[in-house]
Design a protein around this nucleic acid. Structure first.
Lengths: 175, 175
DNA sequence: TATTGTTATACTCTATAACTATA
DNA sequence: TATAGTTATAGAGTATAACAATA
């Protein structure tokens, strides 16, 4: 409570409204988007994570399960169940890796790609919905600042972020 | 970006960098703050939720368990365990409600208030840490916009709003 | 009969460990 | 021996249901 930000010890003492609290605001916005996204992805096996698998394998090409798991920040055992469901739904395929007979390469099916397109559209709607109280200019500023905070935070502690892909590693010709 | 001119199908096809994605950024920032906050609140019984109980009862006065539970968005059975731990640690007290002998009023102890002060300080440091990549002016703007989005979102869907920090169970990376 | 709070039970999600087949 | 993937098991966290005391 030393700098320009609101005095917090006073917050406890006076009972400053929670609306001024960063944690509160972040939590509300995040959960609101998470809820909207979860609703949008409701019929996808694995929900948001199933979507992540689709999006990543579609954008970056075939991936081995273990790589996919670490990239998406899920346990490899969870990845097994997740892929079971996705495969059962006909959205992805497990293919043998010619370079290593132990490994399986995950690729989206045609149906998976179509589904992904639809999901992307729904997610965009969710985004619009969440940021609905900002006008275009504000929205742009907010996105920019948030992105800067996020990129910095991700550099400091990339832990299990979902998809830290560098553009040069992306294969644009995967389809 | 995906907001004002979202060519989302292209996002899937080309693999637009995730850094531009609202869900990704929100998730990263939220989790980063949640992690910092959880670390700051590590020694508090119940973690972030224990803090919430302290903060709420201190700011708003004695509260009945059920009211507290609904306000913080936790199940009433969970509230029982939570208060058991907090009471055992000497941070809150259960007092008989003179108006209803079934109910218990939760009030922070002196020690609870002192602890709260310390926690607030630590949380402020966590905030500073997360927003470290923004200068003072940007930080103010970011807070303002975020707050507006949050208040609006909370009006639309106030549901369990106070468990600001814990719910990673919601879903990691809801891109 | 309905409500506050407690307790016991069950369910979900995730992590841990053991197993196979390869390397 | 180490690694990719699978399976089975155990743990934390949460919700559901039954209970006692009171309204």
């Amino acid at each position: 409570m030393t700098s320009s930000t609101p005095d917090v010890s006073a917050r406890a003492a006076r009972g400053t409204p929670v609306e001024a609290d960063l944690g509160w605001a972040l939590g509300v916005v995040f959960r609101r988007y998470a809820k909207a996204a979860a609703a949008a992805l409701d019929d996808v096996p694995g929900g948001p994570r199933g979507y992540q698998v689709l999006a990543t394998t579609n954008a970056e090409g075939p991936k081995r399960q273990l790589d996919l798991a670490s990239q998406l920040g899920v346990d490899r055992t969870v990845m097994t169940y997740l892929l079971d469901d996705l495969e059962k739904a006909g959205l992805v395929q497990r293919q043998a890796d010619p370079a290593d007979r132990r490994a399986r390469l995950i690729v989206p099916t045609e149906q998976g790609k179509e589904t992904l397109c639809d999901l992307e559209r729904r997610l965009t709607e969710a985004e619009q919905d969440v940021l609905g109280s900002l006008d275009d200019g504000e929205r742009m500023i907010f996105r920019m600042l948030l992105q800067r905070v996020a990129v910095k935070a991700d550099q400091i502690d990339p832990l299990r972020n979902a998809c830290t892909l560098t553009d040069e590693s992306v294969d644009p010709a995967t389809t």
